[in-house]
Simulated assay, not measured.
Amino acid sequence: MPTDTFIWRTQKSAQGTDNVRTLQAQFGDGYKQVAASGINAKAETWNLSWTGKKVDAAAIRQFLLNHVISSFLWTTPWGETHLWRVKSDSIAVSFPAGNKATLSFTFEQAFAP
């Protein structure tokens, strides 16, 4: 089964965070030993938003809800394509005017489908 792709354009105000998990040991003489914690120690998260017609927002919202557990492909503003999942408590919607809707959500890098 092919992997889904998030195809919608998000707002230009995307915020990304690089998270690097490490194991550290601090010694009495000031020496500090640092190592990566696992093979996928670096992972990104992106806080994103989208604004447009309410009917389009409904389709995007459904995509987001469907991809909390299963991963999908998305290309970051850096131009890098990775697997992602939607952070479970990050989907929010507002209705700024009549037929408009704004969705905000967070993508967390995934390492398996």
Rank of each mutant, 00 (worst) to 15 (best):
M1F: 15
P2E: 11
T3P: 04
D4R: 08
D4N: 11
D4M: 09
D4T: 01
T5H: 05
F6P: 00
I7M: 13
I7L: 09
W8N: 09
R9P: 15
R9L: 13
T10W: 10
T10M: 05
K12P: 12
Q15K: 06
Q15E: 11
N19H: 13
V20Q: 13
V20I: 12
R21F: 11
T22Y: 02
L23G: 06
L23K: 12
L23D: 11
L23W: 13
Q24L: 04
A25E: 09
Q26G: 07
G28P: 05
G28I: 14
D29Y: 05
Y31Q: 12
Q33R: 13
V34K: 15
V34P: 09
A35C: 10
A35Q: 13
A36F: 10
A36K: 11
S37W: 08
G38M: 03
I39A: 09
N40L: 05
N40G: 10
K42R: 15
K42M: 10
E44K: 14
T45V: 07
W46I: 14
N47E: 15
N47S: 14
N47R: 13
W50D: 00
T51C: 03
G52F: 01
K53W: 06
K53F: 06
K54D: 04
K54E: 01
K54R: 14
K54I: 01
V55Y: 13
A57H: 00
A59R: 08
A59H: 04
Q62I: 01
Q62K: 15
F63P: 07
F63W: 07
L65F: 05
I69H: 15
S71F: 02
L73D: 07
L73K: 04
L73R: 05
L73V: 00
W74F: 02
G79I: 05
T81W: 02
T81F: 03
H82I: 04
H82T: 02
L83F: 07
V86F: 02
V86I: 09
V86E: 04
K87Y: 08
D89Q: 08
I91P: 01
S94T: 06
F95Y: 13
F95D: 09
P96H: 04
A97S: 12
N99R: 02
K100T: 09
A101L: 01
T106D: 04
F107M: 00
Q109S: 03
Q109T: 05
Q109V: 02
A110G: 04
F111M: 01
P113Y: 14
P113V: 14
